[in-house]
Write a protein that binds this DNA or RNA. Structure first.
Lengths: 227, 227
DNA sequence: CGGTATCTTGACAACGATCAATGGTGGTGG
DNA sequence: CCACCACCATTGATCGTTGTCAAGATACCG
């Protein structure tokens, strides 16, 4: 039992133009390329596909009547997104960094059909999604601002970071507002927390969207304990 | 991308004793009965089954190293729980009110096999779970204490309430601590919020676990707007 | 009936939100 | 090429909600 706020809009919005439609061994899946600022799907759209992010980043959001927004997740390369509820999407999906996306017909998630391997991969991704979201509950419900931001940076470092002169480095494709809405904080608190981590010498910011981690242990500590 | 805290224990714990093992048309599923305080599975257990709650209530929890606990969900009659991650359970599941549980072999979720209808039902439940959890994000990240508690009561009223002299009535099988850990609050705040709703005449408590809703509209308002 | 859990209430402190202003950056047009 | 503008990020000051600590009340169980 969750506490649910059903909001069902009714738009319809197909996936973007394909640049190539190669055949998998057994069943079609479609490559598409999307530019920053475009939309992959909206809440309420008919869910004909699930999507794999191959490059770039996407943002999944849900909006409450009163305008309060929650960023449900960021889709990074390797992530599978757009699991349908019934036959509809239940989030908006926006491209926040030029992305290559592979679209799999929903049927490939539901039945083995001719490609049992992809079926299993998509199903595993769905079950994994449940676990990942459960972990995120812990974060939203039980962590302080510093712990939230530090945890967030750790994940990004692990997933998209590159080693450079003794530190991990990565870029933040999303705005402070997106981070805030993902972590259940305000923009100001996110910004202040970045500054705090900077003052502690744990990270530095070349630009507001370029992070260097200088003290990985310190970041881990900050992600676990308010101290 | 979620911010994940992987904790993987390694116990193994089978499902409880069966009282009956009727055959479905095509594939076995097992009925079991469980008493308050017992466990259905633990985090890290091999996940041989997914479970349907037929009566009673269960509680799904996850615990952080430092002892902070998050109640992931309550399982009420009709809910399907215990979706595996890989081949393991990733939450603890405790019985909080005597429950009848049906266990379905995990295989019935993964492949159509001989019973496509059950397969589809379990798969739909998994996808539904994702949506429900997304809604719960909104709650944890973006709602005040009053809104959280009011939303919580509304769901329980809708799912388990019975009409009685002009008001909805239902019981709370879980403790204040469970509610707090579900909503990301403290016991004290939950208690205070119940009192507030009582003072406003929206609800009354016959016993601490018996709720009557007198002003449904007021409860809906409280669940949406702090006012 | 007594003991223990749980729930409620109170006083206070702290964390994060809010309101407000400043600083920086990128894009556009003069 | 520079000036201007719009947007985003940062910083500051203050307020409010919720957490914390502590005590008391109520319900549950043997």
């Amino acid at each position: 039992m969750y506490v649910t706020h059903s909001t069902q809009t009714d738009g319809t919005h197909g996936p973007c133009h394909a640049i190539a439609a190669p055949q998998s061994r057994k069943q079609a899946h479609v490559w598409t390329r999307h530019t920053t600022g475009s939309h992959l799907f909206h809440e309420g759209d008919a869910a004909a596909f699930v999507y794999e992010v191959r490059s770039g980043s996407v943002r999944l959001t849900r909006v409450l009547e009163n305008g309060r927004r929650q960023v449900i997740a960021f889709g990074l390369p390797g992530d599978i997104i757009g699991f349908p509820n019934g036959d509809r999407h239940h989030t908006d999906c926006d491209i926040i960094a030029n992305a290559d996306i592979v679209a799999y017909p929903r049927r490939m998630l539901e039945t083995e059909g001719a490609d049992p391997q992809t079926h299993q991969r998509l199903l595993d991704a769905a079950l994994n999604e449940i676990t990942a979201m459960q972990d995120h509950f812990m974060m939203l419900g039980r962590k302080s601002a510093v712990e939230k931001v530090a945890s967030f940076l750790l994940v990004l470092a692990q997933r998209t970071g590159t080693l450079s002169d003794g530190g991990m480095m990565f870029s933040l494709p999303m705005s402070r507002a997106d981070i805030a809405d993902f972590l259940g904080l305000t923009v100001e608190t996110v910004s202040r927390t970045f500054s705090l981590l900077r003052k502690r010498g744990i990270i530095s910011l070349e630009t507001p969207q370029t992070v260097s981690v200088h003290d990985h242990g310190g970041l881990v500590a900050a992600s676990q304990d308010p101290e």
